[in-house]
Every structure is written in structure tokens, then in C-alpha cells.
């Protein structure tokens, strides 16, 4: 089934823990409206949790905003996240051991970024001007089915 391209508007939220559920539910709702399968929604939730929590937890020393935009073209769902926080490329943070079975003594982190890279068909990061300031701009694409 061919879907027409839809470009949503940027939505702005306070980058704080209390907003996490609202942001997540809005993104999942957008994906559902575009016909994303439940299996793909699980992958989407995995990815957005990892990236969104990074922004909420580490982007700002004080208060700040996170911008969210979703769109769809053909069989691809696109999620974009932007913030005016510290310059940070989350894709450099894959600390997972990639060879063989992980060791029990290895660092516990790194799985989130690894899973994002594995499950999404495209993940890109740019540091560019958005909304009048330099911004971290993350784009993630995932097949709808």
C-alpha cells in the first residue's frame, strides 16, 4: 500500500521527566495513525526512549525544550528530535562489545544506541541552526511494517 507523504509540524515540550509519557504517547499515536505495525511500534518505543531520555537527562543544566516532529513517506516513518542543549552526538556512544558473547563484567550500558542503530533503517545526527539557535538534530527512520 502506497502512502502519501505527510509532514507534521514541530511540537515543542519542556525537556523534563514529567513530559516523557506525553511525548512518547504522542509519537506512538502518530505512528499508529500512519499504520505502523505493533511489532514496529515496539522498536520505535525502544529507540525513542533511548534518545528522548538522553535529551531530558543530559541536554540542559537547567530548563530547556525538546522539539519533536514526525512524518511519513511511503513505508517509512520519520521521527526527528531537536534541542538547544549541549552539543552532543548520541551516535558516538555505542559502547557495546560487538564481538562474541558479552562478558558479565563488562559495562552495563551501550545497548540502547546499539539497538537503535540495528532496528532503524536510518539514524542521522546534525548540529545545525534550528529555531534561532544551534541545535542537536536527530533523525530516525523506521519502516511502518
Amino acid at each position: 500500500m502506497t502512502k502519501t507523504a505527510t509532514d507534521g509540524d514541530w511540537r515543542r515540550y519542556e525537556a523534563e521527566k514529567q513530559a516523557y509519557d506525553i511525548i512518547r504517547d504522542g509519537i506512538i499515536e502518530d505512528a499508529e495513525e500512519q499504520g505502523m505495525t505493533p511489532r514496529q511500534q515496539i522498536k520505535l518505543e525502544l529507540g525513542l526512549e533511548e534518545m528522548l531520555v538522553n535529551i531530558i537527562s543530559y541536554a540542559y543544566d537547567g530548563t530547556g525544550y525538546v522539539w519533536v516532529r514526525t512524518s511519513a513517506e511511503g513505508d517509512t516513518f520519520r521521527l526527528e528530535l531537536a534541542d538547544h542543549g549541549k552539543h552532543f552526538d548520541p551516535l558516538e556512544k555505542d559502547r557495546r562489545h560487538t564481538d562474541g558473547v558479552p562478558d558479565i563484567d563488562q559495562e552495563e550500558g551501550g545497548y540502547g544506541i546499539f539497538l537503535v542503530k540495528k532496528n532503524f533503517s536510518f539514524v542521522g545526527y546534525e548540529y545545525e541552526e534550528l529555531f534561532g539557535k544551534m541545535a542537536n538534530h536527530l533523525t530516525m527512520e523506521l519502516p511502518l511494517s
Binding site: E49, E50, G112
Partner: peptide, 16 residues
């Protein structure tokens, strides 16, 4: 039904 990287970290911590 779902486990995120935070859940995976918890599993590894429990194993340790």
C-alpha cells in the same frame, strides 16, 4: 511484553 535498554541493564546487574 517489552524490554528497553534500561531493562537489559537491570538484568545484567541482577546476574552480577
Amino acid at each position: 511484553e517489552y524490554i528497553s535498554s534500561a531493562g537489559l541493564r537491570a538484568l545484567i546487574r541482577l546476574k552480577k
